[in-house]
Nucleic acid binder design. Structure first.
Ligand SMILES: [Mn+2]
Ligand SMILES: [Mn+2]
Ligand SMILES: [Mn+2]
Ligand SMILES: [Mn+2]
Lengths: 219, 219
DNA sequence: AAATAAAATTAGTCATAACTAATAATTATG
DNA sequence: CATAATTATTAGTTATGACTAATTTTATTT
């Protein structure tokens, strides 16, 4: 089931528009691809025929599972090539998009993986956009401090801001590693200390000094 | 004057067939591109229209100056990408042609030069084929020993097989550097010593031991 | 609700680059 | 040289993916 250059661009546009949670209408796609709504309708029919999308007059276009896998694969290649162009060929980050727009359509079974490895498995492209993994999963920035999570919210540990033995030893003692799920139960107004559970275990009280050194991803 | 993917493939095929000095007939092109002679005729007309080739029923197709520049540019990109795939992404030399066939059509003003620099300005691709420079000139292997050049032949020094101080000092004394033009005037049957001129200078007699350590490019 | 604007859809056209089938020209062979 | 085989060329067809213009449907105003 090889896809044409054009089909791939449509799948990518539908993916991006869908994420932006607008209704993915022919008009919206036409605007994104800078072409004509009539052309879009033609292509939507073809993509539906190939079971890459569903299209419904009222709900708009949605990627099927196969369609989403294809879209993520193209986005992955696009962003990996952008990293290559900036990191290896010394292009400016503002010069690479149009070239990646071409390179993303190069087709070879091993290419994305080999390129990924060569680049050191980057998680983000030069514009800060996440690079989907070969499994299609997007990496997420851990950019919120645990101390900023509100009561009753759940979050996941992404990275830590302190690598001192004392800190790491403390984390080990708490059984708190990367990826651990934390629920905030109470927050003390006086000193910002928190009562949390880690991976659904016992309740623990942790200081603000501690929660200021943990970056999390909100659910 | 941007060229389509297909036009570029035709120009490349015409270039290669022309070098192989067959008559570049519609049939020959059709065989090379694995398509139909009727399709070839159509494209030849279009390429002639664009002044990229001349086509004459009896003599066949020839690239114009512009056409040859375009063909060499594609071949350059093809071979540079092959080097990239093998040297950087660890593909086998037998796996890269089809991918390069796609990559050669990526269009960007700076790309070939940046890729060339990144790869260390390679002179040959993984299959040993020469990579045209940005000026369109092909590098040539220095693969003949000076000792094998016949009397009255002219050749150019490409590389040396000995880097000992004594040898290099001797070369300096003779004023014989890379690129020097050598003409063989006499060859002694007894010990294979030669009388030569270097860059049209004085006649010098050199031993077979010396001429066995100099690789040249025949004119 | 009626009028108006916007969006979706259809029908028909065009360019590109293939193809097949038929015909013309060339080249090779008995 | 005549016949056969090969090439070249033309004419007509197809698929893809775009377009414009006209029409229908949907959404927004008054
Ligand atoms: Mn981009
Ligand atoms: Mn693209
Ligand atoms: Mn190749
Ligand atoms: Mn190609």
């Amino acid at each position: 089931m090889k896809k044409t250059y054009s089909e791939e661009n449509y799948l990518k546009a539908i993916y991006h528009l869908g994420k932006a949670k607008h209704k993915v209408s022919p008009k919206a796609i036409a605007d994104a691809l800078e072409n004509n709504p009539a052309s879009v309708i033609d292509m939507l029919k073809k993509l539906q025929e190939k079971e890459l999308i569903t299209y419904d007059k009222t709900k708009g276009a949605f990627l099927s599972h196969t369609g989403e896998i294809a879209a993520l694969d193209i986005i992955r290649k696009h962003r990996l090539w952008e990293v290559f162009l900036v990191d290896k060929l010394n292009y400016g980050w503002d010069e690479v998009h149009d070239i990646a727009e071409q390179l993303e359509h190069i087709h070879d079974d091993q290419l994305a993986k080999k390129l990924d490895d060569f680049l050191g498995n980057p998680a983000f492209d030069p514009h800060g956009d996440p690079i989907p993994g070969s499994n299609g999963k997007m990496p997420v920035y851990a950019n919120i401090l645990l101390s900023d999570i509100a009561v009753n919210q759940v979050c996941k540990v992404g990275s830590v801001r302190d690598t001192s033995p004392a800190f790491l030893k403390y984390l080990k003692q708490l059984d708190l590693g990367l990826g651990a799920k934390i629920k905030v139960l109470e927050k003390q107004e006086f000193d910002n200390s928190m009562v949390i559970t880690i991976n659904g275990g016992q309740q623990k009280t942790v200081s603000n000094k501690m929660t200021d050194h943990i970056l999390v991803i909100q659910e």
